[in-house]
């Protein structure tokens, strides 16, 4: 039963990713991206990664949507007449996508004997999540702090208008 539920959600994930890509209005595409994040969160819960799922939900479905929405409102997207002109040839751009998907998946199934994955079976009992984040992977946390600091400097520098221009 668990597998069927997982398959259904995987299918929903692909469908909503396609929707994100093909919707005309940019703001609605961002909302579809948030839906994709929610479906990914549910998949991660099913597969047994609760902490990463919470992170994904709060950051990607929340913060990223807010960033996109503020960028869209600060920049002017084309009006409806201009979009209608561009949209005439729009769907023809997506003609190649099913062809490419079929070709690549065909290649993968033809070489299926070579696709048998071998993976590492873990015989040692692993650490708890807290130990891994805060003790084993110490250096990554330091790196993330520096990235956030750099991002803050970046936003301050990029969005500051000089008054004495």
């Amino acid at each position: 039963m668990n597998n069927t539920v997982l398959y259904i959600f995987l299918g929903l994930l692909v469908v909503s990713a396609l929707l994100t890509v093909m919707i005309k209005n940019t703001l609605k595409a961002v909302i579809a991206l948030a839906c994709t994040s929610v479906i990914l969160t549910i998949i991660m819960f099913i597969m047994g990664a609760p902490l990463a799922a919470i992170f994904e939900l709060s950051v990607c479905a929340g913060l990223v949507t807010a960033i996109f929405a503020s960028t869209i409102s600060l920049t002017d997207n084309p009006t409806d007449e201009e979009s209608a002109e561009k949209n005439k040839k729009r769907l023809s751009r997506y003609v190649f996508l099913p062809i490419i998907i079929v070709v690549i998946i065909g290649i993968m199934f033809i070489t299926k004997p070579a696709l048998d994955f071998t993976w590492f079976t873990n015989t040692v009992a692993e650490d708890t999540l807290q130990n891994t984040i805060w003790h084993v992977r110490n250096l990554d946390i330091a790196g993330q702090i520096v990235v956030i600091l750099a991002g803050v400097f970046g936003i301050v520098t990029l969005l500051k208008e000089r008054s004495k221009k």
């Binding site: 992977r137 990554d140 790196g143 520096v146 990235v147 991002g151 970046g154 990029l158």
Partner: peptide, 19 residues
């Protein structure tokens, strides 16, 4: 993986510096 993290640190700071 730490290599990736520190590559991104240099990356973000360089994007800001170029811009």
């Amino acid at each position: 993986f730490s290599l990736y993290v520190f590559l991104e640190v240099t990356g973000v700071a360089s994007f800001v510096l170029i811009a």
